[in-house]
Design a protein around this nucleic acid. Structure first.
Lengths: 226, 226
DNA sequence: TTTATTAATTGATCTGTATCATAATATTAC
DNA sequence: GTAATATTATGATACAGATCAATTAATAAA
């Protein structure tokens, strides 16, 4: 990862986020504690077990948040531009309970976590805005618990494809940087199962696949998959 | 559920929570918007699909937060006294994405959610304190994703027993109100599997069981279960 | 108490998905 | 271009855990 030249926070696109509640002084303060970093595909944005040092705003790219356990790793969520990574551990001084890894090249802003926490304690509107962000997280994480706990491989893959379509690539037709192995990891199934399920879906004309290019055809049926 | 007589917030035990950051006026304000309710075992504290109306503080008892899906219900978490239910949907005006059901008789304080949100937007320390509560939630929910996704039945039951021991009953020896069926639901396995796994654990002398009374013997081994 | 009802256990079988093995395809190196 | 390597797909088998069926134990009712 390497530093970049960058516009100050007050001119940044992320101003559309809870940052809009900050005044000029506060923006200047947080900008002083900011780094802009490019993470290459495969690089860690943060590492489980280390202390949290920054709140990381994703300007572009794709990351996975993973839990590293004895039995293996499990993808907790995938996130793309507009995401604030690290809010989950604000005011929790322990070691990070998760890692984050770039699934494709990712451009990010890093703010010192203490400075960030300071702003939250000074500006309640900013705090409320960030709380909303965290609540998006927790609700998606609840959704993921339900998906992993209740749905079979077909339903889990449907969920991923719909999520990529709606939240990441914003089109029913998209080309992903994710390998089959990555998709298998995210859906918590073996790559072999992923191949088979994808074949089933092609056969049932729910979608078209060509390598890493996907086109979702029967969205309604995909949503109903269990 | 029925109303109860109660001391005002300023004299309440929950004053040890982020409520300590509230001044007398703020405490009076939130107390005006408070109800104290007893939920009987089996009753809903809130229902998925309805609008969120209150933040609910658990003073005693045990509840489960569940996601109700086509395929069935899945337990997202179990919570006991000291828990704030509903923070997850603060500033998110949509319908509740989960239900909460009392697993045993539960005594709770309900605050009007709008009044609660108002306080957060006025008092940043209170906001930060509540953010910490939410972050406890999200981290436990990450943990649950990992458990459900990676561990087999033995590991999942170990996790439940350890969690009951540490967080709920605060002893290695406890008598639970949960039926086997409840425990099976929480660990996302069939009641038959639960019986078998429990038998295995007894045979391996990891714990003692007598009806609903448990004594955890080999904690270290239980923690290692996968 | 005895009976009725529900909850928990145990056994037999079935099923979804992982794993292992192999083949086909795509990508990279030369 | 061809060879080497990595990725993806397909087939055969194995296994964890669900489901179905039957039994036993516990609780509630008479």
């Amino acid at each position: 990862m390497r530093p970049e030249t960058h516009p100050p926070c007050k001119n940044c696109t992320c101003i559309s986020t809870p940052f809009r509640f900050l005044n000029q002084d506060e923006l200047a303060y947080i900008n002083q504690n900011r780094l802009e970093i490019k993470f290459k595909k495969g690089e860690n944005l943060c590492k489980q077990g280390t202390p949290a040092s920054h709140v990381i705003y994703l300007r572009s790219g794709l990351i996975k948040i993973i839990s590293e356990e004895n039995r293996g790793n499990l993808v907790l969520s995938i996130e793309t531009s507009g995401y604030f990574l690290g809010l989950q551990v604000l005011f929790k001084p322990q070691k990070l309970p998760f890692s984050a890894v770039a699934s494709e090249d990712t451009l990010a802003c890093l703010w010192d976590m203490n400075a960030f926490a300071e702003l939250i304690k000074r500006n309640a509107s900013f705090a409320a805005g960030m709380m909303k962000q965290i609540n998006d997280d927790i609700n998606r994480s609840y959704q993921r618990i339900a998906t992993l706990g209740l749905k079979h491989v077909h339903g889990r893959l449907s969920d991923l494809l719909l999520s990529l379509s709606v939240h990441v690539y914003k089109s029913t037709k998209f080309t992903t940087s994710l390998a089959r192995k990555d998709m298998a990891e995210i859906t918590n199934m073996s790559p072999e199962s992923l191949s088979r399920v994808l074949k089933d879906m092609k056969d049932e004309k729910l979608l078209k696949v060509n390598g890493k290019s996907f086109e979702l055809i029967d969205i309604k049926a995909l949503k109903k998959m269990e």
